[in-house]
Write a protein that binds this DNA or RNA. Sequence first.
DNA 1: GTGGTCTAGACCACG
DNA 2: GTGGTCTAGACCACC
Lengths: 128, 128, 128, 128
Amino acid sequence: MDIVLSPSSGKPIYLQIYEQITAQILSGKIEPGTRLPPIRTVALNLRVSVIPVKQAWEQLEREGFITTSAGRGTSVAPLAGHEIRTRRSDAAVGILVRDIAACRAIGVSRDEIVEIVNQAFNRNTEPE
Amino acid sequence: MDIVLSPSSGKPIYLQIYEQITAQILSGKIEPGTRLPPIRTVALNLRVSVIPVKQAWEQLEREGFITTSAGRGTSVAPLAGHEIRTRRSDAAVGILVRDIAACRAIGVSRDEIVEIVNQAFNRNTEPE
Amino acid sequence: MDIVLSPSSGKPIYLQIYEQITAQILSGKIEPGTRLPPIRTVALNLRVSVIPVKQAWEQLEREGFITTSAGRGTSVAPLAGHEIRTRRSDAAVGILVRDIAACRAIGVSRDEIVEIVNQAFNRNTEPE
Amino acid sequence: MDIVLSPSSGKPIYLQIYEQITAQILSGKIEPGTRLPPIRTVALNLRVSVIPVKQAWEQLEREGFITTSAGRGTSVAPLAGHEIRTRRSDAAVGILVRDIAACRAIGVSRDEIVEIVNQAFNRNTEPE
DNA sequence: GTGGTCTAGACCACG
DNA sequence: GTGGTCTAGACCACC
């Protein structure tokens, strides 16, 4: 449950939380069945109010990543292996498609994009 | 000067305008030196108020894409060929880098990304 | 957060606000980290609309003097001491250079300018 | 009658013309009595419309730098030596006083300003 | 309550 | 007629 917020990113806090949780679920870093901490605890740790955490949790539940039951807390939904692969792939396509289109629109070639992808993968550190 | 606004996109109007103009400048669709129509005309055509158009124009000017002078209108700044290539490349990197990082974070491999890129380029039509 | 507008100055309101805020940040009168009042409050106090205040805020943010986040307000960005000195010096050079050139152009000598500077510093009160 | 316009300076054209003419009169580069070219000629040379030239001429006449008489054109008014010195000094004070105040407001010391003045005078080329 | 974006007007300096 | 600035409203996402 490592979450890092960057206030200057422009992204809403609840979205940052949501994205990092899904990323950790899809990457396998969080195992299905794992119990998530109470939202108040998360809020305290992140030093934000409960509201954005709750918003993130709601979206996670709507999309079937987590299941919450009153009094028993929240845990990561079990996802079959093929389901994870599908979702991961869907997510990747969703993330990239628009931006590849944007690159094409300004005249960037396929090869240039692939080159950028390769360079990104050769760096060990994540871009800030 | 073709601009298409999609109100449902969630993106602010001024951003949509800004992005489409820069795209057209970087792709060469708008030649350097071209005179842009008055902001009020653009606003009328797009059926929006002057404000978002002006906001887009301001950002374009700050970034050196256009030059405006009161009473004489606005025209596309002359950019040397290498300058266009640099900016285009910068733009592409800026667009893609975060998303590639996001893909890596959810465990997508380099090859999967390249595959998505290839598929995107094999489709002739732009995604909506 | 003392701001005084002079409507007869010819300077746009947003510029007056911008300049006075930067001056107070650079002079140390406003401490880094200080929370600025909401733009609507500032607008009310100054008896202007929100627009010029926001315009000033935008320029301040673009130049790194303040950081704003929707829902959480605006605060003065932390600037290291040397950064403040650099910016202050830059600002002074920017302010003076053109006008010194103008003085030279009309045949004013270095000594005359220095004399004017000295006289300005011997007066305690600010010129209107 | 050398005038150089910089369209990107933000300054209105008529002001640029006005300032350069006064500078040349005060610096002695244009002798009293000299006949100025017709505004249409000036406009043609500068590749601007007659309007800003006329505006500059009007301001020059209002301030007594030139005298125009219908049918006989425009010439530089005779100014006694002491009058030139006075005007030059007034101009210098007017130009500098506000900006020195601005520098003081951001905490720049007298010595720093003098240093900037000296550096400006040690450069041979005028700042762009 | 906070900033972000937008509408529909208006007046001004400039060319 | 051009852009620059401003007013007085409004709605929205976010906290």
